[in-house]
Design a binder for these strands. Structure first.
Lengths: 102, 102
DNA sequence: TCCTTTTATCGTAAAATTACGATTATGGAA
DNA sequence: TTCCATAATCGTAATTTTACGATAAAAGGA
């Protein structure tokens, strides 16, 4: 479903929709584990995360994409590897929105 | 997938799993709208929520169940209606966990 | 009792997500 | 250049979620 369609159908603000997308991204155990790993290991490459998760490389890559699309993490290409870290700006925004919501 | 299996497979703590379940519940625009409505209207019945959402009664009831199962809301039967409200205890726990996670 | 109101649940079709192997693309080393 | 390492993407099967109409259940009024 298109974002514009969701906003119209469900009568959400842009912020509420973005927040919901972040929640959805965090609402899977594998992605929760990735986030926890990144908080514990501020700089790491895809391979490190693949080693920790009980999933195939392709699946982990797919989960990383979901987290990237939600804006929660960002990956910078370093040679042949990709270095991932939490996007602190988004995390701060997320926390602020939670405070507003409830 | 069973909860026990998820904990084992993904190597999450009970708290992390519960948090992930709450995130998942909030990760749908309809349920986000329900939560927002409940914060704006602390006491209301199912029918009020059905009137606000662009979804069939059965679908709304299903979404309410997801939020109930996640512990985010609770419904008390009042005669022939059900009165819903946010579970402030769970909301507080949720906010605290977010603070811990990041 | 019988009807109405209210809401949950059932059954099910359609859509989305998840997981994996295979493939592709890119950068660096030999 | 050729090979290897790293990681993203493709194609696809299996599972889960979402949405709805129909049905059930329970309380209250006529």
């Amino acid at each position: 479903m298109e974002q514009e369609q969701i906003l119209k159908t469900y009568n959400l603000t842009d912020d509420e929709h973005r927040l919901s997308e972040m929640m959805k991204a965090l609402g899977h155990p594998a992605r929760m584990q990735i986030i926890r790993y990144l908080t514990d290991h501020p700089q790491c490459i895809t391979g490190d995360i693949v080693d920790v998760l009980p999933l195939a490389q392709a699946t982990v890559s797919q989960h990383l994409k979901v987290l990237r699309d939600a804006g929660l993490i960002c990956g910078t290409i370093e040679g042949t590897a990709t270095c991932y870290c939490l996007c602190s700006e988004s995390v701060d925004w997320f926390k602020a929105q939670i405070g507003d919501l409830f």
